[in-house]
Design a protein around this nucleic acid. Structure first.
Lengths: 107, 107
DNA sequence: TGATTATATAATTATTTACTTATTAATAAA
DNA sequence: TTTATTAATAAGTAAATAATTATATAATCA
């Protein structure tokens, strides 16, 4: 695959509102699937499938701990993604809301 | 539309091999439709439709001169696109090949 | 004027995509 | 061991997308 094609595929991954929001969230801290489901208000299988695409595209990695799977960004090798992340609004509020509902998920 | 949604839409535009190549080409110099058709080896309507999407997304502008329509980039307001352009391989060779076949198109 | 060239638009098709629902697997807790 | 909880997978569906083919518009030129 050509270099342009590879970059186009990465941008296609980020060209989806839900996936771009997930990446913005993970830019604040690693999160487990159920936390992302909570924040994005969509179904667990939907998020699970988005995470697989992001993983296949090399943008995130997973770490299983207990019954939870935590995802984190692996975009250090792609400087243009850092620039995109700078443009995205802070997700701190959403992350903090999670902490306030600790008994709901992943606590 | 949210800020994340707007950026996702731009990235979706760039997340197509043909459109990303067009943007890389226009980063070298403005081009008319028939030149882009020549370089990308696809049909004129196909390119025309990609150009409309890029225009609707605010990434290019058009300038009609004679029977030709020249397109150029309008991405000054989006710094993250500059960073993406830096990662793309140079299109100078393709542009120069165009010049060598001057009697074919847009000459 | 009529022919040619450049581009856009319309309609169609095939493929891809995001999402839902249902099910499975794995871990943990009662 | 039964019951929850977390996450992944499979199957199905509806919508979006890229490309093709055919046609229309507009400018230039003989």
């Amino acid at each position: 695959m050509s270099q342009i094609e590879e970059i186009a595929d990465v941008l296609k991954l980020l060209g989806d509102k839900n996936r771009l929001t997930i990446v913005a969230l993970l830019n604040e801290k690693e999160l487990c699937v159920c936390e992302i489901v909570d924040i994005l208000h969509t179904s667990q299988p939907n998020i699970s499938q988005h995470m697989r695409k992001l993983k296949d595209g090399g943008l995130v990695k997973e770490a299983k701990r207990g019954q939870w799977v935590y995802y984190s960004l692996t975009v250090q090798d792609k400087p243009y993604i850092a620039e995109i992340l700078k443009q995205l609004p802070s997700q701190k509020v959403k992350i903090n809301q999670l902490v306030c509902e600790e008994n709901e998920c992943c606590s």
